[in-house]
Structure formats: C-alpha cells, structure tokens
Amino acid sequence: MEKFNQLSGIAAPMDLVNIDTDMIIPKQFLKTIKRSGLGVNLFDEMRYNLDGTEIEDFVLNQPAYREASILVAGDNFGCGSSREHAPWAIADFGIRCVISTSFADIFYSNCFKNGILPIVLPEDQRDALMKDAEKGANARIEIDLEAQTVTSSDGEVFNFEVDAFKKHCLQNGLDDIGLTMEKVTAIDTFEATAGAARPWV
C-alpha cells in the first residue's frame, strides 16, 4: 500500500450530502477482477453523458479540478455498499484525501486499506474548506498526517482526529494481513478455547 504522510494539492468541492457508492462507481464497473484502472469511471454517471462525452459542469471535468488530489464533500460521504471499488476508483483517479463531516463506516475503513486518508471535521470547518476549494486550482490545501492538521490556502489550520493504529498503518504503508499473521498464536489459542466452548460453530 502507498504510504501517506503529507499532501499538498488541489481540493475539489462536492457540496452534496449522502454521496453514495453507486455515484462514486456505478455497478457496471464492478464486473472487474482487478483493482486497477477504475479512475476513468469515478463518478461515471455524474461525469459523462450517455454518449461518453464529458458533462462540462461536473467538478472533476472543470479545468481547475482535473488534477485534484483532495475532495471536500457533503455529510455522510460513501454511504451505501461495501464495494472497495469506490476507494479503488478514487485512488486511481489520484485523490488521496476526502474531507467531510461524516463517512459511512465500511467506506471509511476501506479508505485506509488503499492509502486514502478520510478526514472528519466539524461542519463549520468543512464549510470553510469547501469555500476554499471553490476558489479553484490556485487554492492548494495541505494535509499533514503526522501533525493531524489540514491547512487551508489562507493558512488557517484545522486539527483532526484519527485512530492511532490506522494512522500508523497509513504512514508506513503496512499490510494488515502481515500484521495479523504475527498474532497467529493468539488466533490459534482463541480457536481452541472457543471450539471447546461452542463446538457447533
């Protein structure tokens, strides 16, 4: 997994609540057996007309935001399905950080497995960053994971919370399975004890 430490980039504003995983990556793109190549279909139905041409006013089609690496979004981003194709598509497009007031549980967890930092901020701070993002390509937002700060283009600094374990894994690009494998004795012990107590499982 790609490490995440600091990020300075263009933030794209998506001021819409409940952006769901069907919007992020519609179902027709789930028929892949790979993780890569989904960026071109990120937000497909909002981004392209039926004939495949771009919908001009969609934020990621606007010249200022084509190189965006941060999304600032409305409440409850990523609600809906468990499809990890959503963070795969986001990462493949080049977005490494999403800022909102809240995220759906499974999507939030999926982000950390794919080198994406989801940041939860209070509404007023998210709104301030939304306004900042609306300024376009000249307004670069900076993220520092170690310091747990977001800095707006005006230099305003917002602190955010992140689980220490998730932060550690993201900073070091660690593979969860490898870490859990180191605890195999604990799993063996649990299985033996639970197996005796609940043999029907």
């Binding site: 993780r35 468990s82 990890e84 689980d163 374990f165 969860d176 399975i177 870490l179 195999v184 799993i187």
Partner: peptide
C-alpha cells in the same frame, strides 16, 4: 453480522479475524 470491503475479505480468508474497534 456486517459488510466488509475486499481487503477485509482477504484478511478474513487468511486469518479468520478482522481488525476492529
């Protein structure tokens, strides 16, 4: 009972556990 992403599917296949809070 709850849904998980594909990375977690792989994690459960390999370890029969999930990292959770």
């Amino acid at each position: 009972a709850h849904g998980i992403g594909t990375s977690e599917v792989e994690h459960v296949l390999a370890t029969q556990t999930l990292i959770q809070k």
